Amino acid sequence: MMQQFYPQVPHTFRFELNKDMHFSAAHFIPSKDAGKCQQMHGHTYFVNVTIAGNGLDPTGFLIDFKEIKNLVHKKYDHTVLNDHPEFKDMFPTTELLAQQIWQSVQELLNNRTNHPSCLQIIVRETPTSYVVFRPTEEDFR
């Protein structure tokens, strides 16, 4: 895998973890405004998850990298995004996919005793196009 560098999130946490992964999925955007994207098509999505915190768990992790990969990759790899319940009432755009990944990761982190936070999700749809999702304070409530 080619090494990627992404926009940094300013923060004051002691530790920052970044996990890169990819998955293949199809989607379509059922809107006349979506042009060619109205038709079913697929992407190899590349995802970067940024997690930060001050405390580590008893093993010495913010969170095990494997837990993040299992959460995202197992959920979306080789699926049709439109079929996922989180996209029932919205189109599975790259922007909303990034937001949904953040919500899933943050829910996982909320159950950890060391209280890390997911600061950023980047979803690359093509080699030249990506979306950055950064939560606001109200997203953590």
Rank of each mutant, 00 (worst) to 15 (best):
L17S: 08
P10T: 10
V131N: 04
T136C: 02
N82V: 08
I63E: 03
F87P: 06
F87M: 04
T44P: 11
P135R: 10
T93H: 03
V72Q: 02
I101F: 02
M2H: 10
F28C: 12
P10N: 10
H115W: 00
T44R: 14
D89F: 09
R112T: 13
P135I: 08
Q39A: 15
H41C: 11
H78R: 10
H22E: 12
H11L: 02
F65C: 07
N110V: 01
W102K: 07
H41V: 12
T12Y: 00
F13I: 01
G53V: 08
P92N: 06
V132Y: 05
V131F: 10
Q106A: 02
N70L: 11
N114S: 10
R141M: 10
A26Q: 07
L81Y: 01
G42H: 07
I29K: 10
A98N: 07
Q8K: 15
T79H: 10
P10Q: 09
R14G: 00
R141Y: 13
K88E: 14
K69P: 05
T93V: 05
V132K: 09
S24F: 12
E107T: 13
L96M: 11
N54G: 14
H22G: 13
F46C: 09
I121L: 10
H84S: 04
D77E: 09
L62V: 04
D77S: 11
E86G: 00
V132N: 03
Q3K: 14
